[in-house]
């Protein structure tokens, strides 16, 4: 117990003293996770929207596939992307392996089904009358799509926040594709695993506190958005 309280006390000191190594790791984590969330959202929201509003053969199959991909293990993604980005891989010439970009590629694959899948359910829940109302008031296809997306905005935003929470806390992709290089690709989760292996708990605990704080902030944001959502309907 003393060990834990001592580690916590030292971790807080580290946080308060603005330790450069700690904050650089936090910065790398946030930068990589935000980038992958942005890219996945830019791809996943239109994809989910199209799947939700279009009627096509095999639609149920696509939705089932998206739902299945929600459970894709990070190490499996890490392995496949590693095979692609390694020197012998199809994209080896890009030299992305063990860079933040490689982590972003893996994380985008991880959360794309999340954003697309939850966008499908958010848009599908929107009343058909919104589409009809926008159209009868003179909206073209794009303006109608924007009106529907606007009505589904809280559900979609919730999915984006959940996806960000997923990538910031994952370790498999960051470890396998980033290589945990100090000052370059070391993220909060990979640093924590390393410090644990070294038996150095202070930095690990400090990073754990930051990670929990980020997760808490994400959850509070999600709750606030869901609150707006509930009030607005």
């Amino acid at each position: 117990m003393d060990f834990l309280t001592q580690s916590l006390a030292e971790a807080f000191t580290m946080l308060v003293s603005l330790d450069p190594e700690l904050y650089f790791i936090v910065w790398v984590s946030l930068r990589v996770s935000l980038m992958s969330t942005l890219i996945a959202s830019a791809m996943g929201i239109p994809l989910g929207f199209l799947i939700a509003i279009r009627h096509f053969r095999g639609k149920r199959g696509v939705i089932t596939l998206l739902n299945t991909l929600l459970a894709l293990p990070t190490v499996v993604i890490g392995l496949f992307v590693y095979a692609l980005l390694s020197r012998q891989g199809a994209l080896g010439h890009l030299g992305l392996l063990y860079t933040p970009a490689a982590i972003v590629v893996g994380q985008v694959i991880l959360i794309l089904p999340w954003v697309a899948g939850f966008t499908v359910s958010a848009v599908s829940r929107i009343d058909e009358r919104y589409r009809r109302t926008a159209m009868t008031l003179g909206a073209g296809p794009l303006q109608t799509a924007i009106a529907i997306l606007r009505e589904a905005r809280f559900g979609i935003l919730g999915s984006v926040i959940a996806a960000f929470g997923r990538v910031i806390s994952e370790i498999g992709i960051a470890m396998m594709l980033g290589g945990n290089i100090k000052g370059f690709t070391r993220t909060m989760t990979t640093a924590m695993a390393l410090e644990h292996n070294k038996g150095e708990f202070v930095l690990a605990v400090a990073l754990g506190i930051v990670l929990l704080a980020v997760s808490l902030a994400m959850n509070i944001l999600l709750q606030v958005i869901q609150g707006w959502y509930g009030e607005d309907r």
Partner: peptide, 18 residues
């Protein structure tokens, strides 16, 4: 679209944008 902009339908149970 140009023709549709000359006609407006009010639904039986109209829905309002939030």
């Amino acid at each position: 679209l140009p023709l549709r902009r000359k006609v407006v339908l009010v639904d039986q149970h109209p829905i309002m944008f939030s």
